[in-house]
Amino acid sequence: MARIVLSDEFGRQFAGGQTRFDLDVKNVRHLIRELEEMFPGIGEHLEAGAIAIDNEIIPDPWLNPIKPNSEVFFLPPIKGG
């Protein structure tokens, strides 16, 4: 099971305050679909932000694999100057 961590805001807004989940998912697309099923409406917000998988921030993630022991963090969007 991969360890999934939502931001505090998403936890508060969509998941009753919970931010940490252990989920069995293949890739980011599956993960977002699964979270959307658990917390309807969260999906599009998750897609607008950034994601770190195993300590690497990934631009526009979708098909990126998530391993059984992966750690996934959803982050606010980052824009550069």
Binding site: A52, D54, N55, E56, I57, E71, F73, L75
Partner: peptide, 8 residues
């Protein structure tokens, strides 16, 4: 880091 991931 405070936002979750560890530094490489």
């Amino acid at each position: 880091m405070v936002y979750g991931p560890k530094l490489k």
